[in-house]
């Protein structure tokens, strides 16, 4: 596979390390009322779609960026690639 790195262009997926569902960015608030339940859901339950999947890849043999890759799990077609940091900020993790 090739991952089209937003800064570096297409790079072989073997340079990356995979983590999993990009929902891992949305770590729950540790002080929330139902924090434990939320962390269990965050830690263990996955949509695991047979279609577009947003997922985290780390460019370990490259620039050490975490990326959010949107990829169709049935064809491996990659629809978009973003820096995870940008996604995290957009999803409100700046606070």
């Amino acid at each position: 596979m090739l991952i089209d790195h937003p800064l570096l262009g297409p790079r072989d997926a073997s340079e990356f390390v995979y983590k999993g569902d990009a929902s891992l960015i949305n770590r729950p608030d540790w002080q929330a009322e139902d924090a434990l339940a939320k962390f269990i859901d965050y830690g263990y339950l996955r949509d695991n779609p047979a279609s577009d999947h947003r997922e985290l890849w780390f460019h370990e043999q490259g620039d050490r960026s975490w990326l959010v890759v949107t990829r169709d799990t049935t064809t491996h077609e990659i629809k978009s690639v973003e820096l995870a940091r940008d996604v995290a900020r957009r999803e409100g993790r700046s606070k």
Partner: peptide, 11 residues
Amino acid sequence: YNSYAQRGNLP
């Protein structure tokens, strides 16, 4: 990586 494609890659 997550996949339902029933095929893998060279690495």
